[in-house]
Design a protein around this nucleic acid. Structure first.
Lengths: 144, 144
DNA sequence: TTCACTATTGAGATTGAGTCTCAAAGAAGT
DNA sequence: ACTTCTTTGAGACTCAATCTCAATAGTGAA
């Protein structure tokens, strides 16, 4: 597995230890493309008999985020959500307020304008949060 | 005071009661243009001998937000911040990761593109969150 | 102005995500 | 194997925010 190698490499590079728990958390995050929260990841691990403590799940996620393997999302529901960043192009999110569906979008022009605005205001952007909240026009959505 | 009238009107319209506590909270929010959190507002009220309980502060802010008198901001520091919305033009925020300075920005073109993107994805935007996090180039900022 | 009907309030308990503590367990280089 | 230093787990703790419920107080009607 390509991702395994990547984790080992980064941990080594930062003088951190490669442990089975860290591998399990990383595997779990790589397993789906959902936008999952820490509790969710913790529960999945337990369900498949993988005993990693809650504290370790949180600590490992922090390491993954700091090393750009994972992106932390704050979709405004009071908890952090996470997505695998490896090999995934940058994007932002639209969230349906009725069905909580999350759709990804990316607009080159907005990205550029953002940079330009920041420069004008005397800032250098490190990261940004751009989320649209609204109502999807999907038939299955509890919406008229 | 214009704002007082506004509050009374909205409460009446929604069959909610006009109380001194609600007035105090609203006054406190109108008093500055800072991006303050609920605890901060609560403490200011206590300091000037205005006894409004913590629960009432939170409950009142919710009412103000729901009725568009106040905007709730999530600037990624684990608490909601609030700003008076009355007579204030729409804007988004840039936050300095070093000194936590908050600067407002507004770009018509980004707003348009946002609408366009949402439409393309089959959404109708209700609100959006757009924040840039980075480093300001201010001399006074603890930054090189 | 009093009444009756409800909404609101306050104090403190509770929730829930996330962090911290510290003794015991375990990587990794030698 | 040995040593060193990091990591782990269980549960205590933090902190913003919400909930509970008995006591209080707006508000419209009479």
């Amino acid at each position: 597995m390509n991702e395994t190698k990547k984790l080992r490499e980064i941990l080594h590079q930062k003088n951190l230890r490669y442990t089975p728990q860290r591998q399990e958390v990383w595997d779990e995050i790589c397993a789906t493309k959902e936008h999952r929260d820490a509790e969710d990841i913790y529960n999945s691990l337990r369900k498949r008999q993988t005993n990693v403590s809650r504290a370790t799940v949180y600590r490992t996620i922090d390491i993954l985020v700091k090393n750009n393997l994972v992106r932390r999302l704050d979709l405004g529901d009071g908890r952090s959500r996470f997505e695998n960043k490896i090999g995934i192009a940058h994007h932002d999110h639209i969230v349906c307020l009725d069905c909580r569906k999350i759709v990804e979008f990316m607009n080159e022009k907005i990205e550029e304008l953002q940079e330009q605005v920041a420069k004008e205001m005397g800032f250098e952007i490190v990261r940004h949060v751009h989320q649209l909240f609204g109502r999807c026009l999907d038939e299955k959505c509890p919406n008229k």
